[in-house]
Design a protein around this nucleic acid. Sequence first.
DNA 1: CACAAATAATTGACATTTTCAACGGTTCAT
DNA 2: ATGAACCGTTGAAAATGTCAATTATTTGTG
Lengths: 155, 155
Amino acid sequence: MSPREKTRPTGQESLRDSVLGGDLIFLLARANALTLAAANAVLAQHGLKARSYSVLALAADDARPTQRELAEFLRLDPSQVVALVDGLEKRQLIERQTDPTDRRANVLVATDAGRDLFARAQESARAVELGLLATVTPEDHERLAELLRLLAFPD
Amino acid sequence: MSPREKTRPTGQESLRDSVLGGDLIFLLARANALTLAAANAVLAQHGLKARSYSVLALAADDARPTQRELAEFLRLDPSQVVALVDGLEKRQLIERQTDPTDRRANVLVATDAGRDLFARAQESARAVELGLLATVTPEDHERLAELLRLLAFPD
DNA sequence: CACAAATAATTGACATTTTCAACGGTTCAT
DNA sequence: ATGAACCGTTGAAAATGTCAATTATTTGTG
């Protein structure tokens, strides 16, 4: 009974119109993949990837996050943060300071070199973001960010 | 000169307000991570993950995609598609049909069992999506999908 | 105060995923 | 007909993700 007898192949006729084209989870995954690739490409010029860029950003922001807070925020296992921080610290871009209020914890702080690098990297990142959304009004750009924040931080 | 002398730790004071909170690339990554986790959790009930669900979806859609088209669409390496298809084919949910117009290519078609499973899985997936965006108007839901499509398919 | 339980960072083991190069079979353009 | 390009497949190497165990420190409770 099911109308499965397609006689001609659809060929490369866009899969976009399939069920997945309306699937938010899929769209999010694909948008993320492309965006991440674009970001990594430009960040490579600064010796960074999206991950290390994010760590550097938070350290440079004077938010003084502990590694654990960072792990939670970036959705990483604490052990992954160790490696990330090791890398940035070896390059003297950030440093670990043991939290005076809790000597178990390390607070991350950017060095001056780290801040400089971040400032430059941030420009690249911003340029990528604007490039990706070049066809969109600033209002829609902001609306997208707002809606993504809802998904990213479901309180 | 830089105002780096924070005397008190900011503690767990939300990192959300840091630079990254406005970074689309980061928001996309985090939203994707959470969404993917939620999707995988419910899809597990059907023995699927987001990846295999997507493959099944396209096969069940009578789009008759080749493995290569699938790889491009899902942003996967062709070799990953092999494993994915192997798994679904072993479970008799889809089958490979050599494309009559190009005998190098395999076209993927869902079996009846595959269509059944997909129908059920799709409901779960849809429920997750609605749950994640429960706090949002249907108009905003659609707007989000529209904007993500722009990022996911930059023509 | 003392002691048990909980927590932060780290390490190392293991699984999963990604990325690449190579190969056989097939098609395509000359 | 022949060489170049292409599809699926395999297998290896690198990167990521997941988890349990360890040490040092803190916190809660009697």
